[in-house]
């Protein structure tokens, strides 16, 4: 993930949060790692949210395959106060929108659709960029990691 695209992705999320009048907008990869978030994250356990979302999507994906569907691209959970709208973007990342009665499912769906297209484009560029640069030019900060570095992580 590079700085430039990261900023762009964050902007898209911020706009989606305002346009859809939602509380939190959240982007997770399919393995449960949080990529970016926008909104009132205080009081929300972001790491758990990310991993459970990914687990949820993975389980739903498994269900889809069982009945011969390619995927269920949208999941929606309705609560008493808050609702969660989960959708897949470019089949690689998961977009989560949490909203309450100030918004509506229709509005969220509409705005998510638009934002998804933008995100898809951003990720396309990101993938192309990382393919072009390859792993060679972009030096991993871990190339020079030493055993001492690793050991020091574990010294309590």
């Amino acid at each position: 993930m590079y700085e430039e695209e990261y900023q762009q992705i964050k902007e898209i999320l911020a706009r989606l949060q305002i346009d859809s009048n939602s509380k939190i907008v959240f982007l997770v990869d399919k393995n449960g790692q949080q990529i970016a978030a926008h909104g009132d994250m205080a009081g929300v356990d972001a790491t758990s949210l990310a991993s459970l979302t990914a687990g949820n999507v993975a389980a739903t994906d498994g269900l889809a395959k069982l009945i011969g569907e390619k995927e269920f691209s949208i999941l929606f959970h309705e609560g008493e106060r808050d609702n969660i709208h989960i959708s897949l973007v470019a089949q690689r990342v998961i977009l989560v929108v949490i909203f309450d009665e100030k918004s509506s499912l229709g509005l969220v769906r509409l705005r998510v659709k638009k934002a998804s297209q933008e995100l898809e484009k951003a990720f396309e560029i990101l993938v192309r960029k990382s393919e072009e640069t390859g792993s060679g030019r972009f030096e991993s900060p871990f190339a020079e990691i030493t055993d001492e570095d690793i050991d020091s992580l574990f010294s309590e």
Binding site: G55, F142, E144, I145, I150, L153, F154
Partner: peptide, 14 residues
């Protein structure tokens, strides 16, 4: 389904 525990270990090379 699963148990999940996130663990911060500190910094490696920043």
């Amino acid at each position: 389904f699963f148990d999940f525990l996130p663990l911060d270990l500190g910094q490696v090379r920043g």
